[in-house]
């Protein structure tokens, strides 16, 4: 397995270079370094000298991918792409275009993001599995039919509606929790409870419906019939056998996103005023802060690759027949 993991890690390098290349190309198709300078320097009274000096100070005065004025290695190294990419592979993200240290920002924002994303993931997973098991348990009854109807309805509604509706009902009309805001430590509970509930509720429809399909497929298998024939209670059959065997496809979808939980949720954090990494990325895109955008894309890619590796490892844990070679 170690050889397998090392091989996967080596594969990750060209993937990350490719992702980086794409990020640079896409960003600079939409924005030029002059545009970035104008955004940072403000709209009023921006002189060409100020733009030039901003570009020099931030290293955007060079060509993007190759430097025709240089020869040899410098043809590629004396470029924006090379100078901005290489430090990221050492996990040095530098400073944002407005001068703040990106690594420190990420460190301080990962916590709030996790405070929402982790409970949404864990509770959401439990709720989805439970609801799916219930529908599978009551299959071909009214409970199952209405459960599926409810799931389809729930997954057809935009997540923005859940957020605005949840804030309106729970926070505005019933006054149970603050509408938005965040505090560190234990005080954060009253701020995260509503986004977590909304996060779980908004994912319930699609999650439960998918898991129901998996469980129904398992319920029809021979080993379930055998277990029932042995006189094992239905509850035990479901939780001990069906759930365990249905885990592999669930793991595929779930484990891969665990590392990405750090990245936070773009819309949720914006509406609830959570100072997490999701809103950090969104702000950076809006303010054309390329230093943050490329760092977040890079970290996202790294986390996704880690997620895929974890998924592979989890297969071996869930199903002893699988070996990583």
């Amino acid at each position: 397995m170690i050889a397998y993991l090392i091989r996967r890690l080596l594969y990750a390098v060209p993937i990350l270079v490719g992702v980086n290349l794409l990020t640079f190309a896409l960003f600079f198709v939409v924005n030029t370094p002059d545009d970035m300078a104008r955004i940072q320097l403000g709209i009023k009274r921006v002189t060409p000298d100020a733009i030039h000096s901003w570009k020099v100070a931030h290293g955007y005065d060079k060509p993007l991918f190759y430097n025709p004025r240089e020869s040899g290695a410098k043809f590629f190294t004396d470029t924006i792409f090379f100078e901005k990419s290489v430090p990221m592979f050492r996990f040095e993200f530098g400073r944002s275009d407005d001068g703040r240290d990106i690594a420190q920002e990420i460190e301080s924002r990962a916590g709030p993001s996790l405070e929402i994303a982790l409970p949404v993931f864990v509770i959401g997973m439990m709720a989805n599995v439970s609801f799916a098991l219930m529908m599978a348990f009551f299959r071909a009854t009214l409970v199952d039919v209405w459960g599926v109807v409810l799931c389809v309805a729930a997954m057809s509604i935009s997540s923005l509606f859940y957020i605005i509706g949840g804030q309106f009902l729970v926070a505005k009309l019933w006054h149970w929790v603050p509408i938005s805001g965040f505090e560190a430590g234990t005080s954060s509970l009253k701020f995260v409870i509503l986004p977590v509930i909304i996060g779980v509720a908004s994912g319930l429809g699609s999650g439960a419906r998918w898991y129901r399909t998996i469980f129904l497929e398992e319920v029809g298998r021979d080993y379930v019939r055998t277990a029932k024939a042995k006189g094992i209670s239905e509850i035990r059959v479901f939780f001990h056998h069906v759930l365990r065997n249905g885990l592999i496809p669930i793991l595929t979808g779930a484990v891969v996103i665990i590392p990405s939980l750090f990245m936070g949720s773009l819309i949720m954090e914006s509406f609830f005023g959570i100072p997490g990494l999701g809103s950090y990325t969104l702000d950076a895109i809006n303010s054309q802060d390329f230093a943050i955008v490329r760092s977040m894309v890079f970290i996202g890619s790294v986390l996704y690759i880690i997620g895929l590796m974890l998924t592979d490892i989890s297969y071996t844990l869930a199903d002893p027949r699988i070996r990583l070679q």
């Binding site: 804030q167 603050p178 938005s180």
Partner: peptide, 18 residues
């Protein structure tokens, strides 16, 4: 000064006196 990126929570919190 609290950050309110969206106008809906900002408005509702104003109405609640916050």
């Amino acid at each position: 000064f609290s950050r309110e990126k969206e106008s809906i929570p900002y408005w509702n919190k104003f109405l609640q006196g916050y």
